[in-house]
Write a protein that binds this DNA or RNA. Structure first.
Lengths: 209, 209
DNA sequence: GTCTATAAATGGATAGAC
DNA sequence: GTCTATCCATTTATAGAC
């Protein structure tokens, strides 16, 4: 038996992908309100009727596209167990991973657009949050909690400490790139800032002073 | 002699203020694209023609409103000289000030809307940046630089350290409120998190270990 | 499924009277 | 300056042919 969902899926993947690519590009560039279905159809090289044969309406198209983006972000999260190395090294590796993910051009656009439309698409905001920052917080908090139990560092509130470490390394570059108040830092700058942050964090949470 | 500017100003302050209030409310709530001039006129209780007699067009109205908001934000920045107290205390007082400014409902809306429209109104993004984060960074960096010179703390890069401190205290709550992934923290929660951050930062930048 | 053409509604901006 | 009424472009969404 052929369900409606199967029919839609079997349809024409090629055109559908053109539409998705065009919509993603335009939504990320100009947001929900300023992107018209005309522009999407034109960018995809298909007629507007074709767009509407694949997606119910503009809201649904936007939600589908941005939901995908959140899932992509989610896929870039680490899931390996954390190696038993010096905390300085582990935190630097995790920190570099975070910085590389979050300072990408596309990630900045997703951040901007999801945030802008947070009032009209609250599910997207939550999806973004759960796929990105929260996963990373849990990952880091687990590690910090373990260090605390082993007496390596003193971290009474691992969740807050994880957030604070993330804020410390992210925010300085993230906010400047978001507002166009600075260029993409070089790898050397990034590492220098990260070293400074890791040093402060580790020395600041040493159990015995 | 009566200039055009004086004429406009002398006109009818009452209606103009109604328009400004309505525009501010709607722009902050629903952003630039999703707010119509019809809605603004209706919310202000005036005709659309009256709106256009005070402001050239939608862009100019938006820029005027959001420029004002940036100036208001700017006015809330501290300018007092920093007292000669223990760094822990000074950083906590400054930190509390930052948190109170940045976690306000209106400040969150300004952040969201200016960021959303950064591509179309880049001047606003820069104005926001210069009025808010950059001023605070300079203020903090000056203090940290002084502590470094006096040998109280070791802060080789005061600008980056200031950014990192700001990120550490702001980000955990700021990002959650922006994405609607958490409630406004109580004063006690705020202070607890701040104490933790200040402790890490000060202990982590002690010159002699 | 895909196209051309078009309906229906909305939004920015203006005309003209007072 | 302020109002009512209106123009015109744009936009979402659909009808109907193939």
């Amino acid at each position: 038996m052929t369900t409606t969902a199967e029919k839609l899926k079997a349809a024409s993947p090629s055109k559908r992908e053109l539409i998705v690519a065009a919509a993603r590009k335009l939504f990320l560039e100009t947001g929900f309100g300023s992107t018209s279905m005309d522009a999407i159809a034109s960018e995809a090289g298909v007629s507007k009727r074709t767009v509407y044969s694949h997606f119910q309406n503009k809201e649904q198209l936007f939600a589908a596209i941005m939901g995908d983006m959140c899932r992509i972000i989610s896929g870039s999260n680490p899931d390996e167990p954390i190696p038993d190395e010096k905390p300085e090294l582990v935190l630097k590796v995790i920190g570099l991973h975070i910085l590389h993910s979050v300072l990408q051009h596309e990630a900045l656009d997703v951040f901007r657009v999801v945030l802008a439309e947070n009032a009209t698409f609250p599910e997207l905001g939550k999806a973004f949050w759960k796929a990105g920052p929260e996963v990373m917080k849990d990952y880091l908090a687990g590690y910090l909690s373990e260090l605390d139990q082993r007496g390596v560092l003193s971290v009474p509130d691992p969740d807050m400490a994880a957030f604070q470490f993330m804020g410390m390394i992210k925010w300085p570059y993230h906010i400047r790139l978001l507002f166009g108040a600075g260029d993409l830092p070089t790898e050397a700058e990034l590492e220098a800032a990260l070293d400074q942050a890791v040093s402060v964090f580790v020395n600041g949470t040493k159990p015995n002073r």
